[in-house]
Design a protein around this nucleic acid. Structure first.
Lengths: 209, 209
DNA sequence: TGAAATGTTGTACTGGCAGTACAACATAGG
DNA sequence: CCTATGTTGTACTGCCAGTACAACATTTCA
């Protein structure tokens, strides 16, 4: 069931929009066959049914994200700069694959129940961030926080939800402009915060009860 | 659908864990009937099938969240303080209803395709935040940002994903401790940001001596 | 009280669709 | 040319959501 021929793989992408639009449940195997031009029997020959189709498509997306983020993160810059690059990379891949992102969010439950995908999700989205935050504390470019795990999860949420919303909504300005806009907004938020300077000073004397 | 009798409503909650665990697809109507003690025919008499069950459960959760957050937001404090209260309120409801939260995230696609729920989702989660950010700029307790919509979406993501993860993971310390921990982490992040003070000065020309 | 309205439930059935079985056909490569 | 492996049409199976409906229960109110 592994190593799908390249031709079939590319045809399969034709199913992404369908799945994004109606969800996997609302999509019949015969619809997928028709939309992709791959006969039903052939789909079953290579893939493990509907879930297999989803797993293939999303696995690809996650690999792509993990790859781009991986590149963005492996520079010699300080962690803060790499964090900005990682945010931009993740958003850019997401915005360029709106159908896959919509399929992902729409069938998130299924995706997390497919063992490989659950792990791929984690390593594409969450882990790079967790690591960057730790690096940042080490190299002094990011603040030490009280609960790094919880903060990493929130940062992950901020980026991912923004990315999904960008992917879902589409835009007038084109994908790369979108990615840049969201990326700037997220970095502004997670790096500088929303408190006005006055309020910030109130806090710096004593950390918290 | 008409108004479900209170007794049935309370029994229906027995289905939440099932749905959270296996997803709505993996849950047969007969399983729901057995788990709740409500005969299948009765379920169909009152509700619109499986989706109806999900819609009822999630609708309830969203109302609860919207309600608590609504209370937290309607004080006379400044927007920043109210934002902290709203975060705490949302997390506390989420952590207290882990099964419903897991069902929500697992069947997010379905949920967003159920018209009432899509709107309820938006008004429970996103809108209060959007409003608070605007209020904060007005009353000076929060910074003006370049792209308020994108920032609101990210804040929404930070809170919601953290809440979901708290709900999914469960905890050793008990629900209210969890909510407090995450709430503190999120506020630290979205109010003060992660950049070290040195780096912050690089950005805001005349802010601090 | 009694009878109509409304709700409750068991049982039996239907239809749609995922997944399977398999045979016929194609193609590659050794 | 013969065997491996891949491709595809067709026909079938089994599961399960949803429906139909009749029998029974409870509430309402005249």
């Amino acid at each position: 069931m592994r190593k799908l021929p390249a031709k079939l793989a590319s045809q399969l992408y034709g199913a992404a929009e369908l799945i994004a639009e109606r969800g996997l449940d609302g999509t019949k195997i015969d619809d997928i066959a028709e939309a992709t031009g791959i006969p039903k029997a052939t789909i079953y020959y290579h893939l493990d049914g509907k879930n297999g189709v989803l797993a293939f498509l999303l696995g690809d997306l996650l690999d792509l994200i993990a790859g781009e983020v991986g590149v963005a993160v492996s520079t010699v810059e300080d962690a803060r700069t790499r964090l900005e690059a990682a945010v931009a990379a993740q958003l850019s891949v997401m915005v360029e694959h709106p159908f896959l992102c919509r399929a992902l969010v729409g069938d998130l439950g299924r995706a997390t129940r497919l063992p490989d995908l659950a792990e791929a999700l984690r390593s594409a989205f969450y882990q790079p961030i967790e690591k960057l935050l730790a690096d940042g504390v080490a190299d002094g470019s990011l603040r030490q926080v009280a609960d790094p795990g919880a903060v990493a999860m929130s940062v992950f949420g901020a980026i991912t939800v923004a990315g999904l919303s960008a992917a879902v909504e589409g835009s007038s300005t084109g994908p790369s402009a979108d990615a840049a806009r969201f990326s700037a907004a997220i970095c502004e938020l997670i790096l500088d915060g929303l408190a006005t300077p006055r309020t910030r000073d109130d806090h710096e004397s004593g950390e918290r009860p």
